[in-house]
């Protein structure tokens, strides 16, 4: 199953951009303008997807020319490329995308050919399946680890380093007491939100 690497899924979507234009601007420009308005980092609507490690949107206007002696190729449609690396299976991710980032999805995909909207989730999933291209060879340095565990580990690392700074020079009873304090702190630490670490 080439889209999978470990427990992670490498989703590649190529959505053809609708032909025509709005007020003289081709829809590829509308998509870029919509994406330009989307907040970044922890404020990104994609940060509401608890399984999503990385994602990108790229509008491909045409393939690149290679020069002589290569044959000249041109795309007849522009394509919105959506690439995502996430934990688990495709359909739960698509449902989460539709639920948690509905404004982003609507504002971008509305300019794509045959986009059915988000009212009917089954239709949305079917549309995304039709736009999916199989990822031939995915790779992930920690693809076996869910995002939840990555966020937890980075947070633990930060708290552990702060503990070391606080406890420098502590020996015996004091050291053990401080360490037990750290263990309690880690047990009660909230999971950092995606985009914050």
């Amino acid at each position: 199953m080439p889209n999978r690497f470990g427990q992670a899924y490498a989703l590649t979507i190529l959505s053809p951009v609708a032909g025509g234009h709005t007020h003289g601007a081709v829809h590829a420009l509308d998509i870029r303008a919509a994406l330009n308005r989307v907040p970044h980092g922890a404020d990104s609507p994609l940060a509401r997807l608890p399984m999503l490690h990385f994602a990108r949107f790229t509008v491909i206007d045409d393939v690149r020319l290679q020069g002589i002696p290569a044959k000249e190729d041109h795309l007849r449609s522009k394509y919105l490329v959506f690439v995502a690396d996430f934990d688990g299976d495709l359909d739960p991710f698509l449902d989460s995308l539709a639920s948690n980032a509905c404004d982003l999805v609507s504002s971008v995909w509305q300019y794509c050919e045959a986009f059915p909207g988000l009212t009917d989730r089954a239709q949305f999933r079917s549309y995304m399946h039709r736009c999916q291209v199989t990822s031939t060879f995915p790779f992930g340095a920690y693809a076996g680890t869910p995002l939840r565990d990555v966020l937890r580990a980075v947070d633990t690392q930060r708290r552990f380093i702060r503990f070391l700074e606080r406890s420098q020079g502590a020996r015996g009873d004091a050291l053990q007491r401080d360490f037990q304090g750290l263990v309690g702190e880690l047990a009660n630490a909230p999971l950092p939100a995606p985009g914050t670490v």
Binding site: I31, H40, S44, A47, F54, A55, F57, V150, G195
Partner: peptide, 10 residues
């Protein structure tokens, strides 16, 4: 790329 998201930017 027109938009890029990273859940662990730091």
């Amino acid at each position: 790329n027109d938009y890029y998201y990273n859940a662990t930017p730091g």
